[in-house]
Design a protein around this nucleic acid. Structure first.
Lengths: 339, 339
DNA sequence: ATGAAAGCGCTAACAA
DNA sequence: TTGTTAGCGCTTTCAT
């Protein structure tokens, strides 16, 4: 057992010649304390180097002012940026963020137990691209917000990119440049965002009278390597495409590598567009055209939602969509007239 | 004020027909409880869905099993990976991690107050490339470990890359390839790691009889843009170099861009090496040769050190160095015989 | 093996 | 305005 805190409210009270309750009033900034006593108490606090014990406060008030945030990992910049946004917003509201990564559902369940059920935290942010059964076995009395997937009304609020619009935006950009044969590299189709981006893609093609070909759609797992492999498959089965829409930037970068390896020049022979606007995207060769996903903002909004739900117990379960934005760099251009 | 926890230890006790103390013994796995009573208590716990209240426990035990981690930001993948490593290790030891970003010294001081002085956390990880006065005004009675800089023995333990060795490794690789005129792009020279990497660079050159030229050294701020600009300056003042050692990968990528813009081919005309082994480093053009900094491991070691210090109050103040490792890809090659 | 009593450091309700 | 009295939910003595 570790040593306990040095100075308590009572020590200060004794020194200042008041009751401990008066000290409590002073440190809580209550109005009903004479200027004189307040001065004496503050002096004593200063002299003794008193610092309120947060745990005792939590105990007495029944509040911890702490949020939990569980993410598949902390290093993926998409997640890291959501977390950073959430932490910033949380702190602006006087909350702390207890962060953890959960590799699998089991880990997730354990964390929820230790963080939520034990009342260490007052709310939960779940960052996940995919809702699993574990996510739906959460304590009912604690506000939860999902980022990256939408579990539906009865399970919790959510914040997501408007994925369908992002899909339309990327596809529309390629069509505007004159492309007709556009290949798509999706994320895992079990994930809502992949599906929604796919729908945006298909809808946009059909709107201009292009029938989407299944031979021009390949799936990846969001990694650069998977994007590379997807392009190799596309090249072997239907090499006539003049543009590639990868559902995220990492796969787009992999796609560019595969095209270069195959002797196709980007953007002269093939245009490539991604989604995310990841760091250093403008330092690849060629600089990557992409659709921005404002993850920092998503994190802030998510934190805002949980805090709102904590403070007004009646808060409705909102599902917010964040707008994408097209960022044109050099990896897209009109189709070569030679082809 | 929020509703309090539903079931307490006493409710369970009543249901099981024992004293609350017996329940406490059961949930703490104490030996001195009859199998019979234990069974009754466990049944009651299960039926009522009882979950121990972590705050009350912290209160009674004087322990929170929580560490604080303060970093300049959470998105820089170097930091994020340290944090992830720390969190993993912390959890393996039964600790949580309260994460926050501190843009400046003032924010840092506030966070320390709220997290440490209030006894919300039992130890602190400080991720920072540079020690400032704020870092040395920490509470004396709480273990602190620095990652990314070394404050010296009396201020706290530290975990760092062996920066000097990393500098030697990168420089040695270029020399082994046959380069003699090697340019260096440093990080900010107020930071220890920049200085140490610089020393490794200079020492290695001198060891093979090359006198380091000040005209071949430029400073950046770790950003890709600063690497790009540094190369532009180098090119204008002393264009005869055949290799560039950038003290991190981002600046190396910027350097490659600048060289390409200037019509110099990497690695044919100029070789480029960085430090970090950042994600996607192998997807740039050309794939980046670099010196690996094992940030995940650094985070784990740092967490290990704090926890050790918490559990044995006498723990010495260690300064650990993590070994770098050379990763050869395509951005380095022998100098062109034509030059 | 079990229970009773005390207290962790603070806030909240009530008195004075 | 100030002080007194009770807890918050648990762990830790110390009895029994």
């Amino acid at each position: 057992m570790l040593p306990r805190s040095r100075v308590t409210i009572r020590d200060v009270a004794a020194k200042a010649g008041v009751s401990h309750q008066t000290v409590s009033r002073v440190i809580n900034g209550r109005e009903n304390v004479t200027e004189a006593t307040r001065g004496r108490v503050e002096a004593a606090i200063h002299e003794m180097g008193y610092q309120p014990n947060a745990i005792a406060r939590s105990m007495a008030r029944g509040r911890t002012f702490t949020l939990a945030c569980i993410s598949p990992n902390l290093t993926d910049v998409t997640y890291a940026s959501i977390i950073e946004g959430a932490e910033t917003e949380a702190r602006a509201h006087g909350y702390f963020l207890l962060t953890a990564s959960a590799a699998d559902g089991e880990m997730f369940a354990t964390l929820v137990d230790q963080m939520l059920a034990s009342r260490r935290t007052e709310g939960l942010l779940v960052i996940t691209p995919r809702i699993s059964e574990h996510h739906l076995r959460l304590p009912k009395n604690v506000p939860v917000v999902f980022v990256g997937a939408n579990p539906g009304d009865e399970w919790g609020a959510s914040v997501n990119l408007d994925d369908e619009e992002a899909g339309r935006m990327a596809t529309g950009h390629l069509i505007d440049l004159g492309h007709r044969r556009i290949a798509l590299i999706t994320g895992p189709l079990e994930e809502q965002s992949s599906q929604n981006r796919l729908h945006g893609f298909q809808g946009t093609l059909q709107a201009v009278g292009i029938e989407p070909s299944p031979l021009l759609v390949e799936g990846g797992d969001w990694s650069a390597t998977s994007g590379l492999q997807a392009v190799q498959r596309l090249l072997s089965q239907e090499p006539g495409f003049t543009a590639v829409f990868a559902q995220n930037d990492r796969m787009a970068v992999g796609a560019i590598c595969a095209l270069r390896d195959a002797g196709r020049c980007v953007p002269k022979d093939v245009s490539v567009i991604g989604i995310d606007d990841m760091p250093l995207g403008s330092y690849f060769d060629p600089p990557l055209t992409t659709v921005l996903q404002d993850t920092h903002r998503m994190g802030r909004q998510a934190a805002c939602l949980v805090i709102h739900a904590i403070e007004q117990r009646d808060a409705p379960c909102e599902h917010q969509l964040v707008e994408p934005r097209l960022i044109i760099r050099k990896s897209t251009d009109g189709p070569s007239p030679l082809r």
